[in-house]
């Protein structure tokens, strides 16, 4: 951590001299590519709305964490997101209701429940941190957690990418080649739920889904192969992450939202180039 701090402070910029910016930069460097990688499969599996629901469920997870008297609500947020993912997954498996309807219903109920629980006694404002996120408060300890999470997702990635990708192309075709289709989809949903939930305090639940979708969508516009798609998404994630962080310092704005604006600008650019 110290080595990182001295490395960044060697940069000839004002922002690079502050500890909170050094940590935030490291967090962005870890998170942006992770989100971009996940985003590629989210788009392929048409799960953009699902991941949105995962983000919004953070309210209820937070409220449950409060009720349980937990010091750090992250565990409650992640736990509830996983529960929700499994529920949506089960409804999809055993019911004929269209998936987007199920998600919209569940999301509306869950957000309402979270707001009701959190607004009891009129103290909702103190939870606005979770709405817009605050990456500048990330502590060295939390960065270590983030690095562990990123590491495990990357390992899981190496083993699961082809399988998840194949299932997204055609379920029956994947099944015919011996892949446990339902298990693969379940594991991917749960990983997605955990990553989204754990990142909410820093990115904010209003914009977290854009961070997942935009880099991948931008890379998709220009890629000529899956390799270009994935690596391109990671690159867009990194560039917009760093640019957004630095701009948020000078403009004094919320970092998560600033990053998303950058990613959105890159997406618009790729759209123009594609034309």
């Amino acid at each position: 951590m110290n080595a990182w701090a001295s490395l960044v402070s060697a940069l000839p910029f004002e922002w690079a001299q502050y500890g909170f910016m050094q940590y935030a930069l490291l967090a962005v460097l870890l998170m942006a590519p992770l989100f971009a990688l996940l985003g590629c499969l989210v788009i392929n599996n048409q799960m953009a709305f699902f991941s949105e629901a995962m983000g919004h469920s953070a309210f209820t997870g937070l409220a449950i964490g409060m009720l349980l008297g937990l010091q750090d609500p992250t565990l409650a947020i992640a736990g509830f997101a996983v529960l929700l993912a499994v529920t949506i997954f089960a409804v999809r498996r055993w019911s004929a209701v269209p998936l987007d309807t199920v998600i919209a219903l569940v999301m509306a109920i869950v957000v309402a429940l979270g707001v009701v629980l959190l607004s009891r006694g009129g103290g909702f404002a103190r939870f606005s941190r979770y709405l817009i996120g605050d990456i500048l408060t990330v502590s060295p300890r939390e960065i270590v957690h983030l690095a562990v999470l990123l590491g495990s997702v990357l390992v899981l990635w190496a083993f699961f990418f082809n399988a998840v990708f194949f299932v997204s192309l055609n379920r029956s075709l994947a099944a015919s080649r011996g892949l446990p289709v339902w298990l693969i989809e379940a594991v991917f949903s749960i990983v997605l739920a955990v990553v989204v939930a754990v990142s909410i305090p820093w990115v904010g639940l209003l914009v977290i889904n854009s961070l997942l979708i935009l880099p991948a969508a931008a890379a998709r516009n220009l890629a000529r192969s899956t390799r270009g798609y994935v690596l391109g998404a990671a690159a867009v994630g990194l560039v917009s992450g760093v640019a957004g962080l630095i701009c948020s310092y000078y403009w004094d704005t919320a970092t998560g939202a600033t990053i998303v604006l950058w990613a959105g600008a890159v997406f618009a650019l790729t759209l123009v180039i594609r034309r």
Binding site: N44, W157, A158, F159, F161, N162, F165, F166, S168, L169, N170, S172, L173, R177, R220, N221, A223, R224, S225, T226, R227, G228, Y229, V230, L231
Partner: peptide
Amino acid sequence: PQKLDLDASAPTTVLDLFATATSRWPIW
């Protein structure tokens, strides 16, 4: 199968399809 679940912007190539179906080596 009759078709694949692909949208018109999917950058997946024929080689990608073969790779994902026949190998564990991550295609990216």
